[in-house]
Computed example of a mutant assay.
Amino acid sequence: MYEDTDNNRATLEIKEPSVLMNGYQYRVIVNGFCLSATSSAATLTVNKAEQVITWANPTNIFSGTALSAEQLNATLITGDGALTYSPAEGTVLDAGTRTLRVDAAETATLILPLKK
């Protein structure tokens, strides 16, 4: 329960709510000298945040060279967990331009990111 007896604010600010708070309900209860009133419930909606991946353009490699951590070096800025690359480390690519992809798993509080 949150009680604001000193400030009498018109709004309730919830800073950095957890996604676990999604669906919480709040009511305003006003107690005055002569009467009291309770508002209808307001439901808090907390959406999952997007994970942020940074990844500089990978260094060029020569045909016949296996992909390594030198090319597959993305960083997960928000969130946690392992990054998955496609194609995977150790893959030998044919000559030409190829697309590399990195993914991070969705968590309870973060949605899937994607960086190509």
Rank of each mutant, 00 (worst) to 15 (best):
P58L: 10
T78K: 12
A42C: 06
M1F: 05
A41F: 05
V102G: 06
G90P: 01
G81L: 07
N60I: 08
T11W: 04
A10R: 11
Y24M: 12
A41V: 02
C34Y: 13
C34A: 13
L83W: 03
N60C: 03
A56D: 15
K115W: 01
L44V: 10
Q51S: 10
N47H: 10
L83I: 07
T109L: 07
N57A: 13
V30L: 13
N31T: 13
T43F: 02
A82M: 11
D103W: 04
A69P: 01
A88Y: 02
I14H: 02
I29L: 15
T109C: 03
P113Y: 01
V28P: 00
D103G: 01
L72K: 06
K115S: 08
Q51N: 05
N22A: 08
G32D: 10
I77Y: 02
E50Y: 07
N31W: 01
T11L: 09
T97D: 09
N47R: 13
A66G: 09
E3R: 12
I53S: 08
L35M: 10
T43C: 04
V92L: 06
Y2C: 00
M21A: 15
Y24W: 09
S36L: 03
W55E: 02
F62V: 13
M21N: 12
T91R: 07
D103R: 12
T84W: 01
I77M: 12
M1H: 07
T75S: 12
T109A: 13
N60K: 14
G23F: 03
G64K: 10
L67S: 09
N22I: 01
T11R: 11
S86P: 00
K115H: 04
A66T: 09
T99G: 00
K115L: 13
T107R: 04
K116F: 09
A41E: 12
N22F: 00
M1P: 06
E16M: 01
T75W: 00
T84I: 15
S18V: 02
F62Q: 13
L76P: 03
A42S: 14
D4L: 04
I77Q: 14
K116Q: 13
E13N: 12
L110K: 11
A41K: 14
T107Y: 05
R101Y: 09
G81I: 06
A104T: 01
A69Y: 07
P17D: 10
I53E: 05
P87N: 08
G32Y: 02
A56M: 09
I29S: 10
G79T: 04
S36F: 12
L44G: 09
L35S: 14
T91E: 08
T54I: 12
T11H: 09
A105C: 02
A41I: 00
R9C: 02
A69K: 14
P17T: 05
C34M: 11
L67F: 10
L20F: 07
V46N: 11
D80C: 03
V30Y: 08
A69D: 14
A82R: 06
G79Y: 07
D4H: 04
L100H: 01
L110W: 11
G96R: 11
K115T: 08
A41W: 02
L83P: 01
V52P: 00
S40C: 03
P113C: 03
D103E: 14
G81D: 09
A88V: 15
A74I: 01
S39N: 06
C34N: 14
L35R: 12
D4K: 04
S39A: 05
T97P: 00
A49E: 14
Y26C: 03
A66K: 13
E50H: 09
Y2I: 15
